[in-house]
């Protein structure tokens, strides 16, 4: 058995008993034969200290629950290989959102921005009996967009979102906005562009590209934002 001890520093805060947050030093026996991902370690830690709080569900990187800040970079605990982590491993809640407890943040503002872009297909034409047709090429335009898991790694790594979470849609919301703009079945392109043509909602993006750097699904919100800007320019001339 390949075991060794790993050092962790974990952000702890329970509003019921703590006056202020603190960093807790914890060392843990790791068995590299069975513990591969950071979430495996968190599960081990929680078995010992049931007060350690974090969200998790699918443990395979598709539900987006266990996003956190890992050694300074946002990511999903279930997809983070522990062997690659520099010690002590520093775990903090996602930056920029209010902390509820330990690694759990209040995601209200993040979802508010997602909801603000009307994240649903708008097509008020008559509903055909069969599926609406879409060519394979047109469908390919949605690749790299529809796969978003709403984990918030991107938006909470974006300095523009930290400053204006109430006004700037943020990379996740904008990626999803472009997902509908790019969909040939959607008829609301103009309204969607109107809604985003605003100094804050879209134009707070300064192409810092932290979002691209952290997306656990390898998506590129900056490119999607660029395409929205391009469409605005094109429709202006």
């Amino acid at each position: 058995m390949a075991t060794s001890t790993m050092q962790f520093k974990i952000y702890r805060y329970d509003p019921d008993k703590d006056n202020a947050p603190y960093m807790q030093d914890i060392s843990v026996e790791v068995n590299f034969d069975v513990d591969r991902k950071l979430l495996d370690i968190l599960t081990r830690l929680k078995a010992k200290d049931d007060s350690l709080s974090y969200r998790r569900s699918c443990r395979e990187g598709i539900c987006g629950s266990d996003a956190m800040n890992i050694n300074g970079k946002n990511g999903l605990a279930c997809l983070t290989e522990i062997k690659d982590l520099k010690q002590p491993v520093v775990l903090r809640p996602l930056p920029g959102l209010p902390v509820i407890r330990d690694l759990i943040v209040d995601m209200t503002q993040f979802f508010k921005q997602y909801h603000s872009i009307k994240p649903y297909l708008i097509n008020d034409g008559p509903r055909p009996d069969r599926e609406r047709l879409q060519s394979p090429e047109d469908r390919e335009e949605l690749n790299g967009l529809y796969e978003c898991i709403l984990c918030a790694c991107c938006s909470t790594s974006c300095p523009s979102f930290w400053w204006n979470p109430d006004k700037f849609v943020g990379p996740a919301g904008l990626l999803n906005a472009y997902r509908f703009i790019a969909d040939t079945r959607d008829q609301a392109t103009n309204e969607r562009l109107d809604d985003l043509e605003d100094p804050y909602r879209l134009f707070r993006c300064h192409t810092i590209m932290n979002c691209v750097d952290v997306c656990p699904k390898g998506l590129n919100p900056t490119r999607a934002i660029g395409k929205i800007k391009e469409m605005m320019v094109r429709r202006a001339i």
Binding site: D129, E131, L133, R139, R185
Partner: peptide, 19 residues
């Protein structure tokens, strides 16, 4: 399933554009 497509489900497509 057709209803789901109308809701916006991004199904893959055949060459004729069907699901």
């Amino acid at each position: 399933v057709v209803e789901l497509e109308h809701f916006g489900m991004p199904f893959d497509r055949t060459d004729e554009g069907k699901i």
